[in-house]
Nucleic acid binder design. Structure first.
Lengths: 130, 130
DNA sequence: TCTTGACGTAAAGTACACTTTAAGCCGTAT
DNA sequence: ATACGGCTTAAAGTGTACTTTACGTCAAGA
């Protein structure tokens, strides 16, 4: 049925330690164990972890994820609080999007400038920092 | 002519300490001082710091920024190395862009689902984690 | 049987980027 | 004249998210 932490780790691209850490922090409250106490991962667990990881790598702190999980365990009455957290998080995603756009623009500009310089097409006074 | 660290800090939205930290790490090698040793910031310094900050908040480590600054100080012969760093960084920006897109999609889906649930329009079995 | 490898826990350690602390100098306002 | 606010330095401290270590259990293969 379910898979081991090693297999889950490989499917998710996360270290086994990181998954144990997430469980210890209360991010995976429904994880099953086998007769020896080993964690068993089903498809829904992999999806949960993948979602947690997606939010994590885009800047949502572990503590906030924990808060969301706890609210979810309390039932539908906490939906307004969860929605509030998500709306704030979304604002942050927008900010990150803007920063990413700016970084892209600068990198592309510099890379084309480097190309021209390597071909000797650009005068020195047209150069810029970094 | 130039402005103080306090003013620069306000213009950039960075703590004065952070700017001093960047200078100490070698990220600002050309910063001028006044007769009392106080840092003086000109427009080009603000631009440099703003660029450094843009790259930083989009995941480029301080150590890599330092590497770029050092290479730049060595002249045009290091352009190939700088271009290589920027290309790798750009790859990472693409990865971040994808993660951001996924996070946006999930957040939007959840927010609309919350809206429907609050209106009692959605059956319980249609609900999802978090 | 015994070693190997994967799993477990708890706790300490690491990496990164600041951030705070401590101590001191400088020019102006009271 | 002396206290205040802003600047300086060097070094220690903080927060976050892992990551590593140390130690122990278990089941299968040589």
């Amino acid at each position: 049925m379910g898979i081991s932490i090693k297999e889950a780790s490989e499917k998710l691209g996360l270290a086994p330690h990181t998954i144990r850490y997430y469980e210890k922090e209360g991010l995976l409250p429904a994880l099953q164990r086998d007769e020896y106490g080993n964690r068993i991962f089903e498809e829904k667990d992999l999806e949960s972890i993948s979602l947690l990881n997606c939010f994590r790598v885009t800047g949502l702190p572990v503590a906030t994820l924990k808060q969301m999980v706890d609210l979810t365990l309390q039932g539908d009455s906490t939906i307004p609080q969860r929605a509030a957290i998500l709306r704030e998080y979304k604002q942050d995603l927008v900010r990150q999007q803007q920063e990413l756009d700016r970084a892209f623009a600068i990198v592309n500009m510099k890379l084309s400038k480097y190309d021209l310089l390597e071909q000797g097409q650009l005068a020195p006074q047209d150069r810029m920092g970094l």
